[in-house]
Amino acid sequence: MRAVEAVYEKVTAKNFPKGPDMLASGHRACQGCGEVLALRLLLKALGTEFIAVSATGCMEVCTGPYPQSAWRMPWIHVAFENAAAVASGVEAATHVLRRKGRGYNQRIPVVAVAGDGGTADIGLQALSGALERYHENFIYVCLDNEAYMNTGIQRSSETPFMANTTTSPVGSVTKGQYTWKKDMPAIAAAHHIPYVATATPAQHLDLMTKIRRAAAIEGPAYLHVYSPCPTGWRMKPELSVEICKLAVSTRIFPLYEVLDGRYQINRKVDNPTPIADYFKVQGRFRHLKENDVAVITERVNADYQRLVDLSEKFPVENPA
């Protein structure tokens, strides 16, 4: 079955899932954490019958200090780099037990959650293996807050160009991160899995609908979720949702889906907001000069155009 044919219910304001959140209050995420907001919404979209696997990181530490856990579904955390591998084992077990008559009667989505470091750096191998092996009920969510926040704001391969972190500091010689953000969704898509999507918690219905779609598809899915970190980005905590909107409207973080290898941009941005508006509310970009912003703008526009080209050349073929 093609991914576009998967049947799922869109999340709307009218049918917004009722009942308690699957991620309980009392977790220790920072004030205004955009990552835990994304997580809360994603989990809420999935109902109650699924299993979650966490990589070590902010979301794991702040939700599971013994003797407490914020997770209301069965949840396991093992280590940093292996959420995809642990989820592979859980998925294989639920699959085979069902076949052998000792499991559940229905498919059980297994959701692996990791940060950008746990995904794009140390966890990339395990993720690649899991995507390549084509586990049927496997959803991988990268909550990308663009640095190692849990250990104190060190740079990762997802840290944006020129961002100031504790290991890509702004000095008299350097201007912060000297590499461009690794294109993780493209790497996931290169495994020719049925579904890859990007999302942010500000477009909450879109975010929640995407994980529902991922769960409905038979085969692995990868979601890359923009996850603002007021602490690490040196930003006012109340701006976590606003910054998502800016990331999309400036084309810094385009919202798109790759279904069966075909592209669909969910929010077209024809007249982008000036990128300077995005930078000025974040302390991590405080040092940028006008020409730096120009360099970044050029790159962001080129990346966006590439996505537009892909979506025109290989458009999603919706079923008749």
Binding site: I76, A85, S88, A93
Partner: peptide, 11 residues
């Protein structure tokens, strides 16, 4: 890692 996940899932 997979073995830990699989055993925890009851296999």
């Amino acid at each position: 890692s997979s073995c830990i996940g699989s055993s925890a899932a009851g296999a």
